[in-house]
């Protein structure tokens, strides 16, 4: 009995330096500007904790929006990057009243456009993109924020799955791939040749007539056994859009629990109409108690100079 494919959603983790920088920018640069700001997040790919969700991190460096800045502060080869947008609103009311559904749908449509225009093939990191909606109460050092990871809803069944045990061989292949592919945006999503060597996604061509599986790979940031990270979802949608209904995926993990998934797209209307209609978009982050609501960071004691002075006794 084939099983429906599941994904582990992203969890956000925000360094206090992110909020500090956001406060600075709000005062000096954004002011009342609520237009979308470009940011860059990173996710650890060398987590070893059991049953860990993929963690997307932002810090003060996120506003520099360049992966080189992160390379200067992260252990070598420990992270990959995700492009994002930040909308910082001016009042709590604005934050509450904003049409979040439409906002997410719009960012999904943008991603869908990049499938059409083939932009995504030269910038595959878009598949892991994110949005942050925020309101900063600068007087109280309180930040209301909500991450979303726009993701298309397409339906896939697992025909079979198996653990990949040749860790060293694949470690070596991924190393080689990263050495040839120096662009950080391209490192995570790739095609695989017959010898399991990664090839750039830009080689992907439209192919409606194909009967055998296309072989692809991702570098995974989750450590749940046999369940891939959230961003595989968009990758599969991309493949579906390009006409592939059978996919063999290598879900590569540095901790040695890599596995293969043999997948088929279901004959549902969403899947069949992929070229005509933008699939439903989902992806607002849930809080740790499972509810859909924004997070609140009360950072008085971390950021307020007065509190800091009081504590440092």
């Amino acid at each position: 009995m084939p099983e429906k494919l599941k994904f582990v959603p992203f969890h956000s983790s925000v360094d206090s330096s992110f909020f500090q920088k956001l406060s600075e920018l709000k005062l000096d640069k954004f002011k009342l500007d609520t237009s979308s700001q470009v940011i860059l997040a990173y996710y650890n790919i060398k987590l070893f904790t059991k049953n860990s969700a993929p963690l997307i991190n932002v810090s003060g460096t996120s506003f520099e929006n360049h992966s080189n800045e992160f390379h200067r502060m992260l252990p070598g080869g420990s992270a990959l990057f995700a492009p994002g947008n930040l909308v910082n609103l001016n009042t709590k009311e604005q934050f509450q009243e904003m049409d979040k559904n439409a906002y997410l749908q719009a960012s999904g449509e943008k991603l869908y456009q990049s499938f059409k225009s083939k932009e995504v093939l030269t910038n595959p990191a878009l598949l892991a993109s994110l949005n942050v909606l925020s309101f900063s109460d600068l007087k109280k050092f309180k930040f209301y924020y909500w991450f979303s990871f726009p993701s298309f809803y397409t339906e896939w069944m697992i025909n079979s799955s198996r653990i990949e045990s040749a860790k060293e061989e694949f470690d070596h292949k991924i190393q080689t791939w990263w050495q040839t592919e120096t662009n950080d945006n391209k490192k995570n999503f790739f095609l695989l040749d017959a010898d399991n060597n990664p090839i750039a996604l830009s080689e992907l061509v439209l192919d409606d007539k194909r009967n055998d599986s296309i072989r692809v790979g991702i570098i995974d940031a989750s450590t749940y056994p046999m369940i891939p990270s959230w961003y595989l979802r968009n990758f599969l949608t991309l493949l579906l859009y390009y006409g592939y209904t059978k996919v063999e995926v290598l879900v590569y993990r540095f901790n040695g629990s890599s596995f293969w998934l043999d997948l088929s797209a279901m004959d549902s209307s969403i899947n069949l109409n992929i070229r005509q209609n933008v699939p439903k978009v989902t992806g607002w982050e849930k809080t740790s108690n499972g509810s859909l609501q924004p997070k609140i960071a009360d950072l008085q004691s971390l950021l307020s100079p007065v509190s800091l002075a009081e504590q440092a006794v």
Partner: peptide
């Protein structure tokens, strides 16, 4: 939307 996307027969793993 979220329900459709996330929850049918556990479309995601919740780790509360």
């Amino acid at each position: 939307v979220v329900e459709d996307g996330k929850n049918p027969s556990g479309g995601v793993v919740s780790s509360s």
